Simulated assay, not measured.
Amino acid sequence: MVAQHRLVSDHIYKVFDEPGVYIFKASFEGKDVMARLVNHLKPGDWCFESLMWFFNWEIAKIRFRRWRSLHAMGVNYIVMANSLEEVWRCRALGIPVLLMPQGQFINEQVFTLANEDRDCRYDAFYAAQAVAFKRLHLAEYIKKLYVLTYACPENSLGEYDLRQFEPKVKHADWNKRYISDLQEITSLMQKSHCILALSKVEGAMWASLEGLLCGIPVVSTRSQGGRARYFTTENSRIVPSNPKAIAQAVEYYKYHTPDPQRVRDSALEKIFIDRKNTSKYFASKVLRKQGWSTCQVEHHLFHSKTGIGKFLLKGPDQDNSASTNHNRKTSA
């Protein structure tokens, strides 16, 4: 059993056995993940694809072909959209789609609540790989900034050197090596007054939701991809895409710290709604003949200390039965 606190790209999760129900999140074309998945599929099975990136028309063509191919195999295929805009785009092409945001699969138990009176070393925290769509230059006026980066240019010592990628944030602190430890990342977030989300187009962006679950508010630009689903007037400020507006919003949170518990709860309220809606669909459409109730589906999918990782499909030669220890219906 593998502990995972969220859906991981190019991983396959078998969440039910009969019928076989698979959830996966493929990166762009997703040829490798589909090549692995088709070996397990049989007529009557269900495939739910969580979108990694905003559903543009290039991605739409690939998903349309995927739907037609799986439909010819007798397999049900549904796109799990992160936003209503993606739902509309899928429907325009006739692709089966439901509003099932990826955020519902986060394991909120692993994110600890920040103290309201915590000692904040940084004005803002931004989890951003060194790529153009993250728009790091928009953070140039933030005085005390921490950037958690990866895929970054390196100096002669083999350390990340963010200045090589974006000189406008050369005043920032950043990690000199790749950090994967969740506790270390959470600790860095909690040393900041707010979380940044500056891309214009992306996926649903795990980092902004993780920050909210730590009780830390978000400063975001307007975006496509679904991250705004968990934003409220209590937990975030959405501002124009210019450095001064972003810096002003960050300054606001330096002197107006919202209640961390309320920030967390406002995000959880929406997560719980999404989980209930997903569970209701599975119980009424996918598992109706098996007699699962909405409460039983919800408990099965979302109430595990190891998170979604307990359903991870490891490989064709290993025991991937979803009924092994964890696929039996559990009373709510």
Rank of each mutant, 00 (worst) to 15 (best):
2 V>F: 12
3 A>E: 14
9 S>Y: 06
9 S>C: 13
10 D>I: 03
12 I>E: 06
18 E>M: 08
33 V>W: 04
39 N>R: 13
39 N>D: 14
40 H>D: 14
41 L>A: 07
52 M>S: 11
52 M>V: 09
61 K>G: 11
63 R>W: 02
67 W>G: 00
72 A>E: 14
73 M>T: 06
77 Y>A: 06
82 N>Y: 10
87 V>C: 11
91 R>I: 06
99 L>N: 03
100 M>I: 08
103 G>T: 07
105 F>N: 08
108 E>S: 15
110 V>F: 04
119 D>M: 05
120 C>W: 06
120 C>N: 13
123 D>I: 03
131 V>C: 00
132 A>N: 05
133 F>R: 13
134 K>P: 01
137 H>E: 13
140 E>N: 02
146 Y>R: 03
147 V>R: 02
148 L>Y: 02
149 T>S: 08
149 T>D: 06
151 A>T: 11
152 C>N: 07
153 P>A: 09
153 P>K: 11
157 L>N: 15
158 G>S: 10
164 Q>V: 10
165 F>A: 10
171 H>A: 09
171 H>S: 09
176 K>G: 08
179 I>M: 09
179 I>E: 08
181 D>E: 14
182 L>Y: 03
187 S>R: 09
194 C>I: 01
199 S>C: 06
199 S>E: 14
204 A>D: 08
204 A>L: 11
205 M>Y: 12
207 A>D: 09
213 L>F: 10
214 C>D: 04
215 G>Y: 02
216 I>C: 02
231 F>S: 01
232 T>G: 02
234 E>I: 05
239 V>K: 03
245 A>I: 05
251 E>Y: 05
255 Y>P: 00
256 H>M: 01
258 P>C: 02
262 R>H: 13
263 V>C: 05
274 D>I: 00
274 D>L: 02
277 N>L: 07
279 S>M: 05
283 A>N: 09
289 K>C: 13
293 S>R: 06
293 S>Y: 06
299 H>P: 00
299 H>T: 10
300 H>N: 06
300 H>D: 00
312 L>F: 12
312 L>I: 13
313 L>R: 06
315 G>Y: 07
315 G>C: 12
317 D>V: 12
317 D>N: 14
318 Q>F: 15
323 S>V: 04
